[in-house]
Amino acid sequence: MNEPSYFAPAGGLPPQTDLLTDRAIVTEAYTVIPRGVLRDIVTSKFPGWRGTRAWVLAKPIEGFATTFAQYVVEVAAGGGSDRPEPEAGVESVVFLLAGELRLVVDGVEHRMTPGGYAFLAPGADWSVHNDGAQAASFNWVRKPYEAVEGLAAPESFVVHERDVEPTPMPDTDGAWATTRFVDPDDLSHDMHVNIVTFEPGAVIPFAETHVMEHGLYVLEGKAVYRLNGDWVEVQEGDFMWLRAFCPQACYAGGPGRFRYLLYKDVNRQIKLT
């Protein structure tokens, strides 16, 4: 297996001599936020965090994607939060892109390195700090947990990508594989945050059209993605935000692997009332 690579934005500002050209797209079916627009002046700061800034990539918007929020968070040396989650009943996934973090979950300490993955259950008592000398960056996905009567909520866990064997998609000879951090048959989970990997030349050979909303943060490589009839070029550090039923497909032309962190809402009945 090739050594994984994880892109993290660094901010900054283009020079005044640059032309206003980029790949940002906002439609009723999808949004593409390219890495080139993740600059210093569009960061957010959150109460209860020290030495921290965040690029907010997705938030619930009526009529679009409504189930989740997603950020890239950059924590300076010495920064962090004793109480990162301000809302009751919210679950999270933290995926470390760069640097190191000390994560404490329900009294248990974990030292996270790039590729580290933490599922933080609703109601978990957790904190996160950067004790290192360099900035740390992570993807943070938040979702209100949808409880089901008679079904216990899932428990928190911390793993590393290298310890989870990717699952090849059927009939692809391993060219398309998914690193699943949660058992798809475990109905206690109402969201999945996985890593999808395409080898050069691999494709999604049909237009996926489904009820799940998506947040896709590109970790590595480049590809062309089919979004609601448009072919869009994407590369590491780009973010794609898809509402329910947005047709989607992919062609990973290479030269290297194409990999992204994928959020989707799962395992719950459709609410009608």
Rank of each mutant, 00 (worst) to 15 (best):
F206T: 02
D106Q: 02
P47T: 08
I41M: 07
N267Y: 08
R35E: 15
G11F: 07
G123R: 00
E62D: 14
R23I: 07
T273S: 11
S127A: 13
W176I: 07
A249W: 13
G132P: 03
P60K: 05
D171W: 05
V94Y: 14
W241R: 14
F198I: 01
F181W: 08
K59D: 04
R50G: 15
Q134I: 08
N2G: 01
G51F: 02
V182S: 02
A147Y: 06
A202E: 01
D265T: 11
K143A: 02
E236Y: 14
V90G: 04
W55L: 03
L101P: 07
A76H: 05
H210C: 11
T67S: 13
M191D: 01
V182N: 04
Y263F: 15
D18Y: 06
A136Q: 00
A252N: 08
E109P: 04
G63D: 14
H214G: 10
L120Q: 08
Y145Q: 07
H192T: 08
E155C: 04
F46H: 11
F245N: 15
E74I: 03
G51T: 05
T43K: 06
P9Q: 08
M191G: 02
K264V: 04
E87A: 13
A175I: 02
P9Y: 03
R257G: 01
P114S: 11
T197F: 01
Q16M: 12
G254Y: 00
G256E: 06
G150E: 03
P205E: 15
N194Q: 12
F46M: 11
F119V: 04
G254M: 00
P168H: 06
H160K: 05
A249K: 01
A29G: 03
Q248G: 10
G201D: 07
T66I: 07
I195C: 13
F46N: 13
G78L: 00
G115A: 03
T27R: 15
A58W: 01
P86S: 00
A147F: 05
Y117C: 05
T172H: 04
F119M: 05
E233S: 12
I33D: 04
R39L: 15
N130D: 13
Y6M: 03
M112Q: 05
N130V: 05
